[in-house]
Design a binder for these strands. Structure first.
Lengths: 193, 193
DNA sequence: AATGCATGCAAGTGCACGCTTGCAAATCTG
DNA sequence: CAGATTTGCAAGCGTGCACTTGCATGCATT
Protein backbone atom coordinates (compact mmCIF):
# COMPACT_ATOMS: atom_id res chain seq x y z
CA UNK A 1 0.00 0.00 0.00
CA UNK A 2 1.52 3.21 -1.12
CA UNK A 3 -0.87 5.59 0.60
CA UNK A 4 0.12 4.85 4.17
CA UNK A 5 3.77 5.20 3.22
CA UNK A 6 3.20 8.67 1.92
CA UNK A 7 1.33 9.57 5.09
CA UNK A 8 4.11 8.30 7.32
CA UNK A 9 6.75 10.13 5.36
CA UNK A 10 4.79 13.35 5.34
CA UNK A 11 4.08 13.10 9.05
CA UNK A 12 7.72 12.38 9.82
CA UNK A 13 8.83 15.42 7.87
CA UNK A 14 6.36 17.74 9.55
CA UNK A 15 6.64 16.43 13.11
CA UNK A 16 10.42 16.57 12.91
CA UNK A 17 10.09 20.22 12.04
CA UNK A 18 7.24 21.40 14.23
CA UNK A 19 6.72 18.76 16.89
CA UNK A 20 3.81 16.38 17.27
CA UNK A 21 1.47 18.96 18.72
CA UNK A 22 2.56 21.54 16.19
CA UNK A 23 1.26 19.52 13.27
CA UNK A 24 -2.40 18.99 12.45
CA UNK A 25 -3.80 15.92 10.76
CA UNK A 26 -5.06 18.26 8.08
CA UNK A 27 -1.52 19.49 7.44
CA UNK A 28 -0.26 15.91 7.23
CA UNK A 29 -3.00 15.06 4.76
CA UNK A 30 -2.14 18.02 2.58
CA UNK A 31 1.57 17.23 2.69
CA UNK A 32 0.89 13.61 1.79
CA UNK A 33 -1.58 14.60 -0.92
CA UNK A 34 -4.22 12.49 0.70
CA UNK A 35 -7.65 13.17 2.09
CA UNK A 36 -7.71 13.73 5.83
CA UNK A 37 -10.24 10.98 6.41
CA UNK A 38 -7.86 8.49 4.84
CA UNK A 39 -5.43 9.08 7.68
CA UNK A 40 -7.97 8.01 10.27
CA UNK A 41 -9.08 5.03 8.25
CA UNK A 42 -5.46 3.87 8.04
CA UNK A 43 -4.12 4.71 11.48
CA UNK A 44 -7.19 5.14 13.63
CA UNK A 45 -5.93 8.25 15.36
CA UNK A 46 -3.27 10.90 15.17
CA UNK A 47 -1.21 9.04 17.75
CA UNK A 48 -1.45 5.98 15.54
CA UNK A 49 0.70 7.75 12.96
CA UNK A 50 3.35 8.44 15.56
CA UNK A 51 3.35 4.82 16.64
CA UNK A 52 3.73 3.74 13.04
CA UNK A 53 6.67 6.08 12.59
CA UNK A 54 8.39 4.61 15.63
CA UNK A 55 7.67 1.03 14.65
CA UNK A 56 9.06 1.55 11.18
CA UNK A 57 12.34 2.94 12.48
CA UNK A 58 13.01 0.45 15.24
CA UNK A 59 16.68 -0.10 14.56
CA UNK A 60 18.77 -1.01 17.55
CA UNK A 61 22.54 -0.95 17.22
CA UNK A 62 24.57 -4.08 17.92
CA UNK A 63 27.53 -2.95 19.95
CA UNK A 64 27.97 -6.26 21.74
CA UNK A 65 29.43 -7.97 18.75
CA UNK A 66 32.01 -5.24 18.10
CA UNK A 67 33.19 -5.07 21.69
CA UNK A 68 33.12 -8.79 22.51
CA UNK A 69 33.36 -11.48 19.85
CA UNK A 70 34.84 -9.29 17.12
CA UNK A 71 37.08 -7.23 19.39
CA UNK A 72 40.74 -7.10 18.41
CA UNK A 73 41.64 -5.58 21.79
CA UNK A 74 43.54 -2.96 19.88
CA UNK A 75 41.63 0.04 21.20
CA UNK A 76 42.28 2.22 18.20
CA UNK A 77 40.66 -0.34 15.93
CA UNK A 78 37.80 -1.32 18.19
CA UNK A 79 36.87 2.19 19.23
CA UNK A 80 36.87 3.39 15.68
CA UNK A 81 34.50 0.57 14.81
CA UNK A 82 32.25 1.42 17.70
CA UNK A 83 32.19 5.08 16.80
CA UNK A 84 31.26 4.21 13.24
CA UNK A 85 28.45 2.01 14.43
CA UNK A 86 27.20 4.72 16.72
CA UNK A 87 27.38 7.25 13.95
CA UNK A 88 25.43 4.91 11.72
CA UNK A 89 22.82 4.54 14.40
CA UNK A 90 22.38 8.31 14.53
CA UNK A 91 22.01 8.52 10.79
CA UNK A 92 19.48 5.74 10.53
CA UNK A 93 17.43 7.06 13.40
CA UNK A 94 17.90 10.76 12.88
CA UNK A 95 14.20 11.33 12.34
CA UNK A 96 13.10 9.49 15.44
CA UNK A 97 15.77 11.02 17.61
CA UNK A 98 14.77 14.52 16.59
CA UNK A 99 11.13 13.71 17.20
CA UNK A 100 12.02 12.11 20.51
CA UNK A 101 13.84 15.23 21.62
CA UNK A 102 10.85 17.40 20.81
CA UNK A 103 8.14 15.15 22.12
CA UNK A 104 9.82 13.42 24.98
CA UNK A 105 7.31 11.87 27.32
CA UNK A 106 4.62 11.29 24.73
CA UNK A 107 5.28 7.62 24.18
CA UNK A 108 7.43 5.41 26.40
CA UNK A 109 8.93 3.68 23.40
CA UNK A 110 9.97 6.98 21.91
CA UNK A 111 11.85 7.83 25.09
CA UNK A 112 13.59 4.49 25.02
CA UNK A 113 15.00 4.99 21.53
CA UNK A 114 16.65 8.10 22.89
CA UNK A 115 17.81 6.89 26.28
CA UNK A 116 18.74 3.23 25.88
CA UNK A 117 21.60 3.20 23.37
CA UNK A 118 23.92 5.51 25.34
CA UNK A 119 23.29 3.58 28.54
CA UNK A 120 23.92 0.26 26.85
CA UNK A 121 27.04 1.50 25.12
CA UNK A 122 28.43 2.88 28.35
CA UNK A 123 28.13 -0.39 30.18
CA UNK A 124 29.70 -2.28 27.28
CA UNK A 125 32.59 0.17 27.14
CA UNK A 126 33.14 -0.26 30.87
CA UNK A 127 33.46 -4.01 30.39
CA UNK A 128 35.74 -3.53 27.42
CA UNK A 129 38.11 -1.17 29.24
CA UNK A 130 38.14 -3.45 32.26
CA UNK A 131 39.36 -6.26 30.08
CA UNK A 132 42.04 -4.13 28.43
CA UNK A 133 43.31 -3.16 31.84
CA UNK A 134 43.50 -6.73 33.03
CA UNK A 135 45.41 -7.56 29.88
CA UNK A 136 47.66 -4.55 30.60
CA UNK A 137 46.96 -3.05 27.20
CA UNK A 138 46.05 0.27 28.75
CA UNK A 139 47.06 1.99 31.96
CA UNK A 140 45.15 1.57 35.22
CA UNK A 141 42.32 4.08 35.51
CA UNK A 142 38.67 4.31 36.31
CA UNK A 143 36.83 2.49 33.49
CA UNK A 144 33.57 4.31 34.23
CA UNK A 145 35.27 7.62 33.54
CA UNK A 146 37.08 6.74 30.33
CA UNK A 147 33.93 5.07 29.05
CA UNK A 148 31.99 8.22 29.80
CA UNK A 149 34.58 10.43 28.15
CA UNK A 150 34.54 8.45 24.97
CA UNK A 151 30.80 8.14 24.93
CA UNK A 152 30.28 11.84 25.58
CA UNK A 153 32.60 12.73 22.76
CA UNK A 154 30.70 10.64 20.23
CA UNK A 155 27.30 11.50 21.61
CA UNK A 156 28.10 15.20 21.75
CA UNK A 157 29.35 15.31 18.20
CA UNK A 158 26.35 13.49 16.78
CA UNK A 159 23.78 15.35 18.82
CA UNK A 160 25.30 18.63 17.87
CA UNK A 161 25.15 17.65 14.23
CA UNK A 162 21.53 16.63 14.55
CA UNK A 163 20.43 19.66 16.50
CA UNK A 164 22.48 22.38 14.87
CA UNK A 165 23.15 21.16 11.38
CA UNK A 166 20.80 23.72 9.92
CA UNK A 167 22.48 26.61 11.71
CA UNK A 168 26.16 25.86 11.48
CA UNK A 169 27.94 25.03 8.31
CA UNK A 170 29.79 21.83 9.06
CA UNK A 171 32.86 22.78 11.07
CA UNK A 172 34.54 19.43 10.54
CA UNK A 173 33.45 16.35 8.62
CA UNK A 174 32.37 13.25 10.48
CA UNK A 175 35.14 11.16 9.03
CA UNK A 176 38.03 13.40 10.02
CA UNK A 177 36.47 13.99 13.41
CA UNK A 178 36.33 10.35 14.35
CA UNK A 179 39.68 9.48 12.88
CA UNK A 180 41.31 12.21 14.89
CA UNK A 181 39.26 11.93 18.07
CA UNK A 182 39.70 8.20 18.46
CA UNK A 183 43.44 8.43 18.05
CA UNK A 184 43.61 11.35 20.47
CA UNK A 185 41.54 9.45 22.97
CA UNK A 186 43.64 6.31 22.62
CA UNK A 187 46.83 8.30 23.19
CA UNK A 188 45.22 9.60 26.36
CA UNK A 189 44.36 6.21 27.79
CA UNK A 190 47.62 4.58 26.73
CA UNK A 191 49.99 7.07 28.35
CA UNK A 192 50.91 6.55 31.96
CA UNK A 193 50.11 9.46 34.20
CA UNK B 1 5.23 42.12 41.73
CA UNK B 2 5.03 38.61 42.96
CA UNK B 3 2.23 37.43 40.71
CA UNK B 4 4.13 37.55 37.44
CA UNK B 5 7.03 35.70 39.04
CA UNK B 6 4.77 32.86 40.05
CA UNK B 7 3.36 32.73 36.53
CA UNK B 8 6.80 32.61 34.94
CA UNK B 9 7.97 29.89 37.27
CA UNK B 10 4.87 27.80 36.75
CA UNK B 11 5.07 28.23 33.00
CA UNK B 12 8.74 27.28 32.97
CA UNK B 13 8.05 24.13 34.93
CA UNK B 14 5.21 23.04 32.70
CA UNK B 15 6.71 23.99 29.35
CA UNK B 16 9.94 22.24 30.24
CA UNK B 17 7.93 19.11 30.85
CA UNK B 18 5.33 19.18 28.09
CA UNK B 19 6.51 21.70 25.53
CA UNK B 20 5.02 25.07 24.73
CA UNK B 21 2.14 23.70 22.72
CA UNK B 22 1.51 20.98 25.26
CA UNK B 23 0.66 23.47 27.99
CA UNK B 24 -2.51 25.54 28.11
CA UNK B 25 -2.78 28.96 29.66
CA UNK B 26 -5.39 27.48 31.92
CA UNK B 27 -2.92 24.89 33.17
CA UNK B 28 -0.33 27.58 33.80
CA UNK B 29 -2.87 29.61 35.74
CA UNK B 30 -3.79 26.64 37.89
CA UNK B 31 -0.15 25.77 38.54
CA UNK B 32 0.61 29.38 39.47
CA UNK B 33 -2.52 29.61 41.60
CA UNK B 34 -3.65 32.60 39.61
CA UNK B 35 -6.71 33.38 37.56
CA UNK B 36 -6.27 32.77 33.87
CA UNK B 37 -7.22 36.33 32.94
CA UNK B 38 -4.36 37.63 35.06
CA UNK B 39 -1.91 35.95 32.71
CA UNK B 40 -3.18 37.90 29.75
CA UNK B 41 -3.28 41.14 31.67
CA UNK B 42 0.34 40.66 32.63
CA UNK B 43 1.85 39.20 29.48
CA UNK B 44 -0.63 40.06 26.75
CA UNK B 45 -0.51 36.65 25.15
CA UNK B 46 0.70 33.12 25.71
CA UNK B 47 3.79 33.83 23.66
CA UNK B 48 4.46 36.78 25.94
CA UNK B 49 5.11 34.36 28.79
CA UNK B 50 7.66 32.49 26.72
CA UNK B 51 9.42 35.73 25.83
CA UNK B 52 9.51 36.69 29.49
CA UNK B 53 11.03 33.33 30.37
CA UNK B 54 13.77 33.81 27.80
CA UNK B 55 14.48 37.38 28.81
CA UNK B 56 14.80 36.45 32.44
CA UNK B 57 17.34 33.72 31.73
CA UNK B 58 19.52 35.56 29.27
CA UNK B 59 22.87 34.56 30.64
CA UNK B 60 25.69 34.37 28.15
CA UNK B 61 28.96 32.76 29.18
CA UNK B 62 32.20 34.71 29.04
CA UNK B 63 34.74 32.33 27.57
CA UNK B 64 36.88 35.07 26.04
CA UNK B 65 38.34 36.11 29.34
CA UNK B 66 39.30 32.58 30.33
CA UNK B 67 40.98 31.77 27.03
CA UNK B 68 42.66 35.10 26.38
CA UNK B 69 43.51 37.55 29.16
CA UNK B 70 43.36 35.05 32.02
CA UNK B 71 44.89 32.14 30.12
CA UNK B 72 47.89 30.50 31.77
CA UNK B 73 48.68 28.61 28.57
CA UNK B 74 48.88 25.52 30.67
CA UNK B 75 46.17 23.57 28.86
CA UNK B 76 45.26 21.44 31.84
CA UNK B 77 44.47 24.54 33.87
CA UNK B 78 42.79 26.57 31.16
CA UNK B 79 40.68 23.75 29.80
CA UNK B 80 39.49 22.80 33.24
CA UNK B 81 38.41 26.39 33.76
CA UNK B 82 36.62 26.48 30.45
CA UNK B 83 34.86 23.24 31.17
CA UNK B 84 33.70 24.56 34.53
CA UNK B 85 32.39 27.70 32.92
CA UNK B 86 30.58 25.68 30.31
CA UNK B 87 29.14 23.43 32.96
CA UNK B 88 27.95 26.48 34.87
CA UNK B 89 26.31 27.80 31.75
CA UNK B 90 24.36 24.58 31.36
CA UNK B 91 23.22 24.69 34.96
CA UNK B 92 22.11 28.31 34.86
CA UNK B 93 20.28 27.85 31.57
CA UNK B 94 19.03 24.32 32.02
CA UNK B 95 15.40 25.40 31.79
CA UNK B 96 15.82 27.42 28.64
CA UNK B 97 17.94 24.81 26.95
CA UNK B 98 15.39 22.11 27.60
CA UNK B 99 12.61 24.36 26.34
CA UNK B 100 14.73 25.30 23.35
CA UNK B 101 15.21 21.65 22.46
CA UNK B 102 11.48 21.01 22.57
CA UNK B 103 10.29 24.13 20.87
CA UNK B 104 13.07 24.84 18.45
CA UNK B 105 11.97 27.23 15.77
CA UNK B 106 9.34 29.01 17.83
CA UNK B 107 11.40 32.09 18.66
CA UNK B 108 14.67 33.07 17.01
CA UNK B 109 16.16 34.10 20.32
CA UNK B 110 15.37 30.74 21.82
CA UNK B 111 17.27 29.04 19.03
CA UNK B 112 20.23 31.30 19.58
CA UNK B 113 20.58 30.41 23.25
CA UNK B 114 20.97 26.84 22.09
CA UNK B 115 23.17 27.31 19.05
CA UNK B 116 25.47 30.23 19.77
CA UNK B 117 27.53 29.15 22.79
CA UNK B 118 28.99 25.99 21.20
CA UNK B 119 29.87 27.88 18.02
CA UNK B 120 31.51 30.68 19.95
CA UNK B 121 33.40 28.31 22.18
CA UNK B 122 34.66 26.34 19.23
CA UNK B 123 36.14 29.36 17.53
CA UNK B 124 37.78 30.50 20.75
CA UNK B 125 39.25 27.06 21.32
CA UNK B 126 40.63 27.06 17.79
CA UNK B 127 42.43 30.34 18.49
CA UNK B 128 43.67 29.04 21.80
CA UNK B 129 45.10 25.84 20.38
CA UNK B 130 46.69 27.75 17.52
CA UNK B 131 48.55 29.86 20.01
CA UNK B 132 49.69 26.85 22.05
CA UNK B 133 51.04 25.30 18.90
CA UNK B 134 52.98 28.38 17.93
CA UNK B 135 54.41 28.45 21.43
CA UNK B 136 55.25 24.74 21.00
CA UNK B 137 53.34 23.85 24.13
CA UNK B 138 51.42 21.17 22.30
CA UNK B 139 52.18 19.05 19.27
CA UNK B 140 51.30 20.09 15.71
CA UNK B 141 47.81 19.03 14.79
CA UNK B 142 44.61 20.37 13.30
CA UNK B 143 43.22 22.92 15.80
CA UNK B 144 39.72 22.61 14.37
CA UNK B 145 39.69 18.92 15.23
CA UNK B 146 41.05 19.09 18.76
CA UNK B 147 38.72 21.99 19.49
CA UNK B 148 35.80 19.94 18.25
CA UNK B 149 36.85 16.89 20.24
CA UNK B 150 37.06 18.83 23.46
CA UNK B 151 33.86 20.72 22.80
CA UNK B 152 31.95 17.56 21.89
CA UNK B 153 33.10 15.89 25.07
CA UNK B 154 31.81 18.70 27.28
CA UNK B 155 28.70 19.31 25.23
CA UNK B 156 27.87 15.63 25.09
CA UNK B 157 28.24 15.13 28.80
CA UNK B 158 26.10 18.12 29.70
CA UNK B 159 23.42 17.44 27.11
CA UNK B 160 23.19 13.86 28.18
CA UNK B 161 22.77 14.96 31.78
CA UNK B 162 20.06 17.43 30.82
CA UNK B 163 18.18 15.07 28.57
CA UNK B 164 18.53 11.79 30.43
CA UNK B 165 18.99 12.76 34.04
CA UNK B 166 15.52 11.54 34.92
CA UNK B 167 16.09 8.14 33.36
CA UNK B 168 19.60 7.22 34.32
CA UNK B 169 20.95 7.37 37.82
CA UNK B 170 24.08 9.43 37.57
CA UNK B 171 26.80 7.19 36.15
CA UNK B 172 29.62 9.53 37.13
CA UNK B 173 29.60 12.85 38.94
CA UNK B 174 30.31 16.05 37.05
CA UNK B 175 33.38 16.81 39.10
CA UNK B 176 35.16 13.53 38.57
CA UNK B 177 34.17 13.51 34.93
CA UNK B 178 35.80 16.83 34.14
CA UNK B 179 38.85 16.24 36.26
CA UNK B 180 39.48 12.99 34.46
CA UNK B 181 38.42 13.99 30.98
CA UNK B 182 40.45 17.15 30.83
CA UNK B 183 43.61 15.36 31.93
CA UNK B 184 42.96 12.56 29.47
CA UNK B 185 42.42 15.06 26.70
CA UNK B 186 45.55 17.01 27.58
CA UNK B 187 47.62 13.84 27.55
CA UNK B 188 46.27 13.22 24.09
CA UNK B 189 47.21 16.59 22.66
CA UNK B 190 50.60 16.70 24.38
CA UNK B 191 51.92 13.40 23.15
CA UNK B 192 53.66 13.31 19.79
CA UNK B 193 52.16 10.94 17.28
C1' DA C 1 -19.72 -8.11 -15.57
C1' DA C 2 -19.98 -8.33 -10.63
C1' DT C 3 -17.88 -7.83 -6.07
C1' DG C 4 -15.09 -5.79 -2.78
C1' DC C 5 -11.86 -2.42 -1.23
C1' DA C 6 -9.39 1.78 -0.83
C1' DT C 7 -9.90 6.50 -1.47
C1' DG C 8 -11.95 11.29 -2.30
C1' DC C 9 -15.28 14.59 -0.97
C1' DA C 10 -18.19 17.38 1.89
C1' DA C 11 -20.41 18.22 5.82
C1' DG C 12 -20.48 18.14 10.40
C1' DT C 13 -19.71 17.27 15.78
C1' DG C 14 -17.87 18.33 20.05
C1' DC C 15 -14.26 20.08 22.51
C1' DA C 16 -10.27 22.58 24.11
C1' DC C 17 -7.86 26.46 23.43
C1' DG C 18 -6.36 31.47 23.37
C1' DC C 19 -8.22 35.49 24.57
C1' DT C 20 -11.75 39.25 26.06
C1' DT C 21 -14.73 41.72 29.05
C1' DG C 22 -17.44 43.71 32.85
C1' DC C 23 -17.80 43.89 37.55
C1' DA C 24 -16.69 43.24 42.38
C1' DA C 25 -13.34 42.48 45.87
C1' DA C 26 -8.91 43.08 47.56
C1' DT C 27 -4.58 45.31 48.01
C1' DC C 28 -1.45 48.87 47.69
C1' DT C 29 -0.07 53.99 47.84
C1' DG C 30 0.15 58.58 49.17
C1' DC D 1 -9.00 57.64 54.66
C1' DA D 2 -9.31 58.31 49.40
C1' DG D 3 -7.87 56.88 45.02
C1' DA D 4 -5.61 53.90 42.01
C1' DT D 5 -4.01 49.43 40.70
C1' DT D 6 -4.14 44.65 40.74
C1' DT D 7 -6.59 40.49 41.05
C1' DG D 8 -10.60 37.05 41.10
C1' DC D 9 -14.68 35.46 39.01
C1' DA D 10 -17.83 34.12 35.51
C1' DA D 11 -19.40 34.20 31.18
C1' DG D 12 -18.53 34.13 26.69
C1' DC D 13 -16.48 34.44 21.68
C1' DG D 14 -14.30 32.54 17.72
C1' DT D 15 -11.32 29.22 15.98
C1' DG D 16 -8.81 25.19 15.00
C1' DC D 17 -8.49 20.70 16.14
C1' DA D 18 -9.19 15.43 16.16
C1' DC D 19 -12.33 12.60 14.52
C1' DT D 20 -16.86 10.73 12.13
C1' DT D 21 -19.99 9.61 8.58
C1' DG D 22 -22.51 8.77 4.27
C1' DC D 23 -22.03 8.60 -0.37
C1' DA D 24 -19.80 8.50 -4.80
C1' DT D 25 -15.86 7.00 -7.56
C1' DG D 26 -12.15 4.46 -9.19
C1' DC D 27 -9.62 0.09 -9.40
C1' DA D 28 -8.33 -4.60 -9.00
C1' DT D 29 -9.66 -9.50 -8.57
C1' DT D 30 -12.39 -13.30 -9.90
Amino acid sequence: MQTSDRIIEAATRLIKKNGYRGVSTKAIATEAKVNESTIFRQFGSKQGILEAIIERHSDIPQFEKLLKEDATDNPEVDLLNVSQQYRLFFHKNADIILIGLRDKGMLPELDRVLADPPLKLHSLLVEYFERLQKKKVIARQDERLIAMSFLSMCYGFQMSELIHRQYQSQLVTEEEFYKHSVSLFVKGILSQS
